[in-house]
């Protein structure tokens, strides 16, 4: 099927343009340094000279919780940033350069063209987050204690769904406009919007941001399930890609 042929091309592109390398390296580094930072931060604070003796005693000893919080905080921030940076050109750049027109005069449906973009980014992010998770798990084991692997796996799965939402949103933005710069601006706006709504008290519980909180809870054994947020996130992915397809199908290239 032609979807897999384009997916092969997209993955080759991720590799050749070093996009895969960048995502992998960024995530792996944060996987490694997050537990390390959690371990060292209190010591670093204490080592500040002239720290009043009483205050130094107030700084708590680092725990497993700190390691997981660091990991999720760093990967959420940089994962979302990468999702935006690596997806913003996906469709817009091909329209800008004329390669989309070139490829689509051969037997290739526009649905397959779009879906392959998403799939390739999904594969890259999955691979990179797996490496980051292994790195974090191993360092946490060395510095603190073993994390329960099943709930840590669940945490990473939830983060991945969160990233997919942002990838799909950015691909949609990239489809709507003709230039990469415009796509970046639009996607950044969408990101702020999703984060903004996500931080509102009641509605926020239904938004992808909640996935990260749920994940932390899971990994630390204090599960506070946010199933609605998961369903909404999956729904958003499908909706964004669906709209992108409806728009792209009618576009003249």
């Amino acid at each position: 099927m032609n979807f897999f042929i384009v997916l092969r091309k997209e993955l080759m592109e991720q590799w050749r343009t070093k996009r895969l390398l960048v995502i992998l390296a960024v995530m792996a580094i944060f996987g490694l340094i997050s537990p390390l930072l959690a371990k060292l931060t209190p010591d670093l604070l204490k080592s500040i000279p002239d720290m009043p003796a009483g205050l130094a005693d107030l700084i708590p000893e680092p725990t497993l919780t700190d390691a997981v919080l660091q990991y999720v905080k760093n990967l959420e921030q940089f994962g979302i940033l990468l999702a935006l940076l690596m997806s913003m050109g996906s469709v817009a750049q091909e329209k800008e350069r004329g390669t989309a027109a070139m490829m689509l005069t051969h037997p290739l449906s526009r649905a397959a063209f779009l879906l392959a973009k998403f799939a390739a980014l999904a594969v890259t992010f999955t691979l990179s987050l797996t490496v980051a998770a292994l790195a974090c798990w191993y360092y946490t084991l060395l510095l603190f204690e073993a994390l329960p692997w099943d709930s840590f796996l669940a945490l990473n799965g939830l983060m991945l769904v969160g990233f997919f939402v942002y990838i799909a949103a950015t691909i949609l933005c990239s489809t709507l406009v003709r230039s990469q710069g415009a796509a970046a601006g639009l996607a950044f706006g969408a990101l702020v919007l999703i984060a903004g709504i996500g931080s509102l008290p009641r509605i926020g519980t239904y938004f992808p941001g909640q996935l990260f909180n749920w994940g932390v809870g899971l990994a630390l054994g204090a599960a506070d399930p946010a199933w609605p947020a998961l369903w909404v996130s999956l729904g958003l992915i499908v909706t964004f890609l669906g709209i992108a397809w409806l728009v792209f199908r009618r576009q003249e290239l």
Binding site: E13, R16, T17, R97, G98, T99, A101, M102, T105
Partner: peptide, 12 residues
Amino acid sequence: YLPEEPAFYPWM
């Protein structure tokens, strides 16, 4: 079809 300015993926 050969467009007036054929475009390709530069990395290929």
